[in-house]
Simulated assay, not measured.
Amino acid sequence: MLTRTVAVGFSLITVAETMTTAAATTSSESRGLHTSAGRDAPSSSPLRRLQRLAAVPGFDPGRVNDLLLLRPDTGGQSGSQPKEESGNRHVVFFHGDIQNFQEDMALQPEGAQWLSWSLEQVALTLGRRFPGKHIWVVRASRMYLHKFSCYNNFVESNMFGAPEHSPDFGAFRHLRALLSHGMERANLPNPLQPHGDANSIPSGFSLTLVGFSKGCVVLNQMVYELAGARADPQMSHFVKRISDMYWLDGGHPGGSETWVTSKEVLKELASSGVCIHTHVTPYEVCEKYARCGPGWAVMDQR
């Protein structure tokens, strides 16, 4: 469909498959993640590279999100890339329904059985798929009934998180400011600036966006905003640094807008130079599965 559509090979197909089948992490490992903070973990553990950042503001004070940052493991790097460039590669992940921080999921009957897919565990999985990159997990600003992820800061949504897309909600502006303030909070060197022209983008900065299940509504919203963002002198240089976008089994409990189908909007995406990766399962694309229930029930059906 798109000129640069790429079938998922190396990428995140393994992540999507394992996230939509039986959990691959043992319950003992999940309990260990729940009880071990970064400083308390063994020196060799990747948990030491995890950092939670609470209530990080976006482009206006009313939009805040919790972030989880996994710093890259630099111990095994060869040093062939300049330090300032290799340190500015970032992956941003938007999670699905029922996924949350480990301790929050453990308190909920529906969540406790899926601790292997807590935000912390997914960050570690992404860290293995994208070595050398900073992994950012964006927690949905609201979890209705502790199950439905609602990305109200990125897209107009109803109480269940089903989106109402528009071309000017400000998803790109919020993401940029969120990353900028998150990088400052985490004391990363040479952070992204919350707004500005090409000079405000750090050297070597690149961005990969990943949505899973409900999290794909954020990526869809960004596609609708793409034309305006590319024409905006304050946003165009940031958008140009997005190298890849991954849709992993996208879906939500609304009756429409699961996929972007507007030809004009898709033409803009095709001309942007962003590499597109998609992976789906029968639950989201086959009618007999789609009738099973709302988004959070997906994990129980797969």
Rank of each mutant, 00 (worst) to 15 (best):
G161V: 08
G161N: 08
A162M: 09
A162T: 08
A162Q: 08
A162V: 10
A162R: 07
P163D: 04
H165F: 06
P167M: 09
D168E: 14
F169M: 10
A171K: 00
A171T: 03
F172N: 06
F172D: 06
F172K: 08
R173T: 11
L175M: 08
A177K: 01
A177V: 01
L178W: 02
L178T: 00
L178N: 01
S180Q: 05
S180D: 04
S180A: 11
S180V: 05
H181N: 05
G182P: 06
A186P: 08
N187Y: 10
N187P: 10
P189V: 14
N190E: 14
L192I: 09
L192N: 04
Q193F: 12
Q193K: 12
P194K: 09
H195N: 13
H195L: 15
H195I: 15
A198R: 13
S200Y: 07
S200R: 06
I201K: 01
S203E: 02
S203Y: 00
L207Q: 01
V210W: 02
G211F: 02
F212N: 02
K214G: 03
G215S: 12
G215M: 06
C216Y: 03
C216E: 05
V217Q: 00
V218G: 00
L219D: 00
N220P: 05
Y224M: 12
A227L: 15
G228Y: 11
G228W: 15
A229G: 10
R230L: 14
A231F: 13
A231E: 14
D232K: 12
P233S: 11
F238G: 09
K240R: 13
I242D: 08
I242P: 04
Y246T: 01
W247A: 03
W247Y: 13
W247T: 05
G250F: 02
G250P: 01
